[in-house]
């Protein structure tokens, strides 16, 4: 019988280093062969493009981000459906006036309503709270790829930009 506290610290350190070394070797090896491999050094600095948009680091080619002015123009055209990807509590506290609720985290509970209310060819704008949230982008991908919605945009800067632009909002739950 040998308790761990009886080990000499040097011994524990040696064992730890051995495990860390194995972990790094396996991790590096898997990252070499895995289809999901990532760059050894990521680009985590923000990069601006010509429109002043900071492409988020989780941005993918098929994503269609729009700036607040485009979103406002679409809102005013009246045929665009706005979908709120945040939590129901956030939605309740205030959302884009007329926006439907489809929390990314509780997708299964809400998607049926979206299916029945939003035609597949309707232009959709998803949004979440601000620049750093990514729920709206992921939601847009799911709606595009799994639900077959054809025209999906994501509001860059989300609800924060909407508030800054002093566009109409409402509180509470119109649905359910």
């Amino acid at each position: 019988m040998r308790r761990i506290r009886d080990y000499h610290p040097k011994h524990l350190l040696r064992q730890s280093l051995a495990i860390i070394a194995i972990g790094i070797v396996v991790g590096v090896f898997v990252n070499l062969i895995s289809p999901k491999s990532i760059a050894w050094v990521g680009v985590w600095k923000v990069a601006y493009d010509s429109t002043g948009m900071v492409k988020p680091d989780y941005f993918e080619e098929q994503d269609t981000l729009i700036m607040i002015d485009e979103a406002i123009a679409m809102y005013q055209s009246n045929n665009t459906v706005f979908i709120d990807a945040r939590f129901p509590e956030d939605y309740e506290m205030g959302h884009i006036k007329g926006a439907l609720l489809l929390p990314f985290e509780e997708y299964d509970d809400y998607i049926d309503e979206i299916r029945s209310e939003v035609p597949k060819d309707a232009p959709i704008v998803t949004y979440c709270s601000e620049e750093d949230c990514d729920a709206s982008l992921y939601l847009a991908r799911i709606l595009r790829e799994d639900e077959g919605y054809k025209e999906i945009y994501t509001l860059y800067g989300g609800y924060e930009k909407w508030l800054e632009a002093q566009m109409p909002i409402e509180k509470g739950y119109p649905q359910r």
Binding site: I20, I24, G27, V30, I38, A39, W40, G42, V43, W44
Partner: peptide, 17 residues
């Protein structure tokens, strides 16, 4: 930033092992 990815690569394996 330059350490983030290498951590993401190795840390889960160190946890697993």
């Amino acid at each position: 930033g330059y350490l983030i990815n290498i951590f993401a690569i190795a840390l889960p394996w160190i946890e697993l092992i």
